[in-house]
Structures are given as C-alpha cells and as structure tokens.
Simulated assay, not measured.
Amino acid sequence: MQMVYNSDNYVVVQFDLPEGEAQHGGEPLSRGGFEIVDKFARKEIFIEGAMAEAFKDEVTALIETSPSEEEMDDYIERYTSLMQHPVILH
C-alpha cells in the first residue's frame, strides 16, 4: 500500500498485492489497484484491472506536465460519479 496523492479534496492509495502461485496462460497472476477517496463527500472507489491501468497511464501522462493540485483534483474528480461506497472509520 502506497499513498500516491493527497490533497485537501482527495487521497489516492495504490495497492500492489504480491503475485500468487496461480497461473493463467503460463503467467503468474498479480492483483492490485487504486483506492480513490473523496474527502468531502466521504465516498470511495477501488479500481482494478483495465480501469486501474488506464488511471495509472493517464496520471503518469498528467504528471509529466507538472500539474497543479487543482489540475490533479480536476482529473480525479472524473471518478467521483462512480463512488458508491461511504467511507467508514473504525
């Protein structure tokens, strides 16, 4: 687990789970993804698979432009409509 972004509005955490022994087509399976939390709406989403890969690629391209916090937040805001899970603190 690694925090990759934290602003007043959002936090993004990357999860890399170790490769398992299960194999598909001769390749070890690995899982991971990103948890995106909207701090004000108190909702979150966990993305994995193709959506996580697209997120990673788009964020990498955005970072190359040296974005402001507002530009990063604007990008992450695209995912807020998908957030259905309330953030619950234990």
Results as ranks from 00 to 15, higher is better:
M72C: 12
A22C: 07
E19M: 10
F46T: 07
A61R: 01
M3A: 04
L82M: 15
Q2H: 04
F34G: 05
Q84G: 07
H90T: 14
I88N: 09
D38E: 05
T65M: 08
M72S: 07
V13K: 10
E64F: 03
V13D: 05
G26I: 08
V4Q: 11
F55Y: 13
E48D: 04
T80A: 09
E27K: 13
V37R: 05
P67A: 03
A41S: 10
L17I: 14
A41Y: 04
F34T: 04
E53W: 00
E21F: 09
D16N: 13
P28C: 09
Q2W: 00
S81H: 10
L89S: 13
Y75A: 13
S30H: 10
D57S: 06
V12W: 01
E19R: 09
F40S: 14
V37S: 05
Q84V: 12
V11M: 14
A41E: 14
V87G: 09
V11W: 06
L29K: 13
S68E: 08
E53R: 03
A52P: 00
G49W: 01
G25L: 02
M51L: 14
I36H: 03
M1W: 02
G25Y: 01
V37I: 10
F46P: 01
Y10V: 06
F40K: 15
E69S: 04
F46K: 02
F34I: 08
A41L: 13
V11F: 08
M3Y: 02
G20A: 10
F40P: 03
V13Y: 06
P18T: 04
L62R: 04
K43F: 12
P18L: 05
D8C: 07
D57Y: 06
Y79Q: 08
H24V: 05
E48K: 07
I36A: 02
H90N: 15
H24K: 13
G20Y: 02
L82E: 15
Q2F: 00
R78K: 15
E19N: 11
R42V: 08
H85L: 13
I63V: 09
L17D: 11
Q14Y: 02
V37W: 02
G20I: 05
E77H: 12
A50K: 08
E48T: 11
F55T: 03
D16Q: 09
D57Q: 05
E77V: 03
H90Q: 15
I88M: 11
Q84N: 07
H90W: 14
V11P: 04
L89W: 10
T60I: 04
S81W: 08
L17A: 14
F46G: 01
K39F: 07
D57P: 00
I36T: 03
